[in-house]
């Protein structure tokens, strides 16, 4: 239980992952499913970024003079997640384009109604 206070970033990101997963499972609306997908990705990004934080240090940007290794947080997770965010945006764009096309072809974006329309 004391984990809730010492590792609040990690616990929060896991709960956020659960929220996204539940949104993905429960909703029939495709736009809501895509929103759930994005919440899930964001949770993973938050978890990864939290790995880089160190108490009392500042962002890894050198201003004026270099303050030494002990003054800055770990820059690697931030660099990786920049790439990850661009990938998530690309996948979201493609999924939204598919949703537009599905609305054109089927006339609805409710998944259970689409699944009923077999054949044709």
């Amino acid at each position: 239980m004391e984990m809730l206070f010492t590792k609040y970033f990690e616990v929060g990101s896991m709960v956020l992952f659960g929220v996204g997963f539940m949104t993905l499972l429960l909703h029939n609306n495709l736009i809501k499913k895509i929103i759930g997908m994005n919440i899930m990705d964001t949770a993973v990004f938050l978890f990864f970024i939290a790995k880089g934080y160190i108490d009392g240090r500042e962002a890894p940007i050198v201003r004026g003079f270099h303050k030494g290794v002990e003054a800055y947080v770990n820059p690697v997770p931030a660099a990786l997640m920049l790439t990850g965010i661009v990938i998530a945006v690309s996948v979201t764009a493609f999924a939204l384009a598919l949703t537009v096309k599905i609305y054109e072809k089927y006339g609805t974006i409710e998944l259970d109604e689409i699944m009923k329309m077999r054949g044709d």
Binding site: F17, F21, L24, L30, K33, I34, M37, M40, D41, V44, F47, F48, K51, G84, V91, F94, A95, L98, T99, K101, I102, K105, I114
Partner: peptide, 24 residues
């Protein structure tokens, strides 16, 4: 095709989210 692609895209995004969590 469009229905199958959306299914594939959503499921494989779920999969890659899990893989990224594993990498983390």
């Amino acid at each position: 095709n469009i229905k199958a692609t959306l299914k594939y895209l959503v499921l494989s995004t779920l999969g890659s989210g899990l893989v990224l969590m594993g990498i983390a």
